[in-house]
């Protein structure tokens, strides 16, 4: 597996990308997280990319993270402090620059 570019504690944004509407695709990043901010909790390891496996293409390993998302940016309802923990592949995550993390 390639070296993880992200580490626990890093702030990230899930890419606001919708490949499934550009053609045949198999995506494991749920729609409700696209474009949303989260925080890396742990590195889960390297796994063959399901987006390739689904089409029986050569599937290089990608780094998989456990990323936690506060509830309000996802749905403006529910109880404060509750959150959602999701496995997301590195190629779906963008690091949030440090100056924006301070905000």
């Amino acid at each position: 597996m390639s070296v993880p570019l992200l580490a626990p504690g890093d702030r990230v944004l899930v890419k606001d990308d919708w490949p499934e509407f550009r053609g045949p695709a198999h995506i494991r990043t749920p729609h409700y997280l696209r474009g949303k901010p989260g925080r890396v909790v742990r590195v889960l390891g390297g796994f063959a990319n399901p987006e390739d496996l689904a089409f029986a293409r050569p599937a290089p390993k990608r780094v998989l993270y456990h990323v936690v998302f506060e509830r309000p940016p996802l749905w403006h309802e529910g109880e404060a402090g509750d959150d959602v923990l999701v496995e997301i592949f590195e190629h779906w995550l963008q690091p949030v620059p440090a100056e924006r993390q301070a905000a």
Binding site: W18, E20, H31, Y32
Partner: peptide, 16 residues
């Protein structure tokens, strides 16, 4: 918030 669900694939039903 929009009352309309965002576009999503048929199986991708979290929070609909």
């Amino acid at each position: 918030m929009s009352e309309i669900d965002p576009q999503h694939a048929i199986h991708d039903i979290g929070g609909l």
